[in-house]
């Protein structure tokens, strides 16, 4: 008995050490990035592990706003994220609602048509999608970014799940009172599925904010660039990529901080929806 408790104690110590060092591999780089972003140009090249700036300075952020002109891509990103997320949530909720109705003519076909695209990853159809976007005249517009992924099977099924949890008796009495399909959707189902709406809003927000591939494919002029595109030319090692862009480490790390902040804010305020969404997603797939 004594032996097992000492073993247990030893395990607890080792386990905590492992997990702390793991957490440190996440925390130290982030603190390092934050610290370097607030250094002077010169200090940002110092060969030490910087966890706080020696002489705090905004030189990096100044370069970010003036030389890199980060504000424009930032606002472009806000635009596609906000509009894209809003459209995504409303359209997927509408489709999810249709899928919980009792058998109606054509429902089986609709279910199939909505489910199959889950097996067609965007990456594998970029060539024909590129051709389509060009033919539709959407090339080099922010709308092309909003439209790609404006609905997804995943979100539709997630909304369907939430709607199914709403008691039918509510809508039956509304039907009795002569309410139409749209009234029932907007007045009963949408307000009662707030948790579901919140979950896909947050997922979509993060997803849209971080979008890379559509922007790489469809945006060609500098004033249309979204955040990740500009950030990439900022953060990749310049000696190796051969770009002429010359910025100090502080501005490069400032760019990263700039792109992370909205994500951290969303995550801290809506953590429970994240975990819920991940779990439902895994069960579904």
């Amino acid at each position: 008995m004594i032996r097992t408790t000492t073993l247990r104690k030893l395990f607890v110590v080792v386990n905590n050490l492992i997990l702390i060092s793991l957490a440190l591999t996440m925390v130290v780089p982030l603190v390092n990035v934050l610290a370097v972003s607030f250094t002077t140009d010169l200090e940002s090249y110092e060969n030490v592990i910087k966890l706080f700036p020696r002489e705090p300075s905004l030189e990096g952020y100044k370069a970010l706003f003036q030389q890199i002109a980060i504000l424009r891509p930032f606002l472009n990103n806000v635009f596609v994220t906000v509009i894209g997320t809003f459209l995504h949530v409303i359209l997927c909720a509408m489709a999810g609602y249709v899928l919980i109705r009792e058998k109606f003519l054509g429902k089986a076909i609709l279910v199939i048509l909505v489910t199959i695209p889950m097996m067609i990853p965007f990456e594998m159809i970029i060539i024909p999608v590129y051709v389509t976007v060009k033919r539709l005249g959407l090339m080099d517009t922010l709308w092309s970014i909003i439209i790609i992924g404006v609905v997804s099977t995943f979100s539709i099924l997630l909304m369907k799940n939430y709607f199914e949890g709403i008691p039918r008796s509510l809508e039956e009495s509304a039907f009795m009172d002569g309410a139409g399909e749209l009234t029932i959707f907007f007045r009963i189902y949408l307000p009662l599925a707030k948790a579901g709406l919140a979950t896909i809003t947050i997922f979509q927000f993060v997803y849209k904010w971080n979008h890379i591939l559509p922007a790489v494919l469809f945006l060609h002029s500098v004033e249309k660039y979204t955040l990740q595109i500009v950030l990439k030319s900022l953060v990749v090692s310049q000696e190796l990529s051969g770009t002429t862009l010359s910025v100090a480490n502080n501005a490069r790390m400032g760019g990263i901080v700039f792109a992370i902040i909205p994500l951290i804010v969303v995550y801290l305020f809506a953590q429970k929806y994240f975990i819920k969404g991940i779990m439902i997603g895994a069960v579904k797939e």
């Binding site: 793991l22 390092n32 993060v206 990439k232 953060v235 090692s237 490069r252 790390m253 994500l263 995550y267």
Partner: peptide, 30 residues
């Protein structure tokens, strides 16, 4: 701990790639 470990999943590949290119760089990289 769980929250901290999950955090990098939120970041785009540009952010994650940028952080690690810097961490692995010959000057000032951790």
């Amino acid at each position: 701990t769980q929250t901290i470990i999950y955090m990098p999943h939120l970041f785009s590949w540009v952010i994650v790639g940028g952080i690690w290119i810097f961490m692995l760089s010959p000057n000032a990289g951790i």
